[in-house]
């Protein structure tokens, strides 16, 4: 049995002159929650479609749960749930009937599973409502219900939090976390809601212009994030001078002094004491940390082409 739930080997996709995915080498371990981040058009959906055999790679290949993916792959999908781009459903069919379609195609036996998943996704009030009359948020829930109906080992989710209200986002996040923790389900998700990924993912891959430009563990991301001590004072010039005299290297940006030295970050109280003794007591002193969004934007700007 392969150690990886997902592995890609030089996976590439070209549409004419456009290289949508370029030599992608991904390794996603079993039980991981892997977040795949990228700007619009970075190649996230194309990658997910290649992982599902919907698009043929121009070069390279992908393996899911140790099996090489081809258009004719079928049995494997019993173990994989997916949600590709915006959720879709048969408009004239009810929520329950849409799930019955997935139930048939998955070859499931126990009808009560439909009731269970409706309950798990809080869709009971809409079970008999036609899909065309659902809100986007409930349509998204239906898409997730379909992905989870057959209790898969691996979930491939493209923007799973799309259109959900804040309570729904928290609910889905908690559900995915529980699935990974309690049932060992591997989750591979793309998202533009970076704050969500920040709280959910055990590993993050950043894709830009079709290439994987960074891949890091949640702890590694924590370490790599830009941390700084921000100081504001009534007279910034004098405060800066005092800090420089004490050997600090403050940088001034938009009315704030920023200190990145380890000793300042570890002992902000020392900085406060220094400023108080020089008569420039700080008005605000705070250690701030770059969030994933800022890290992502910094990284894509460095790579060029960031919007």
């Amino acid at each position: 049995m392969s150690d990886f739930a997902i592995s890609t080997h030089g996976l590439s996709k070209r549409y004419g002159d456009v290289l949508a995915v370029d030599l992608l080498d991904l390794r996603v371990g079993r039980g991981e929650i892997y977040a795949f981040l990228g700007l619009n058009g970075a190649g996230k959906s194309t990658t997910i479609r290649m992982l599902l055999g919907m698009i043929k790679p121009s070069a390279g290949h992908a393996e899911i749960l140790g099996q090489r993916i081809e258009a004719r792959t079928s049995g494997l999908w019993r173990k994989v749930g997916h949600l590709v781009e915006s959720p879709t459903a048969y408009p004239e069919l009810s929520v329950r009937e849409n799930l019955a379609i997935a139930f048939h195609l998955q070859g499931l036996k126990a009808r009560k599973r439909i009731d269970e998943i409706i309950e798990e996704l809080s869709l009971q009030p809409y079970a008999h409502r036609q899909a065309k009359n659902l809100s986007m948020g409930n349509l998204q829930r239906l898409g997730l219900a379909r992905a989870l109906l057959h209790e898969p080992e691996l979930l491939l989710l493209d923007e799973p939090a799309n259109a959900l209200d804040p309570a729904g986002v928290v609910e889905i996040r908690s559900m995915l976390k529980n699935l990974a923790r309690d049932r060992g389900v591997t989750v591979f998700l793309s998202s533009h809601i970076l704050a969500e990924v920040d709280r959910l993912a055990t590993r993050v891959g950043i894709v830009h212009q079709g290439r994987l430009i960074e891949e890091l563990e949640a702890e590694e991301l924590e370490r790599k994030r830009d941390r700084r001590l921000e100081v504001t004072a009534r007279d910034l010039d004098k405060a800066e001078e005092a800090l420089r005299s004490a050997g600090y290297l403050p940088q001034r940006t938009e009315g704030v002094l920023e200190l990145r030295e380890e000793r300042a970050l570890e002992s902000p109280d020392e900085v406060a004491r220094l400023l108080v003794t020089t008569g420039e007591a700080p008005m605000r002193l705070a250690v701030t940390q770059e969030d994933l969004e800022q890290h992502f934007l910094r990284l894509t700007r460095q790579e060029g082409g960031g919007k």
């Binding site: 781009e85 915006s86 879709t88 048969y90 048939h104 070859g107």
Partner: peptide, 18 residues
């Protein structure tokens, strides 16, 4: 037209059966 084809392509039921 309804973009529901996505739900048919990666299922244990082979595409030829569909």
């Amino acid at each position: 037209a309804d973009r529901t084809v996505r739900g048919l392509l990666a299922t244990p039921t082979p595409r030829s059966s569909i």
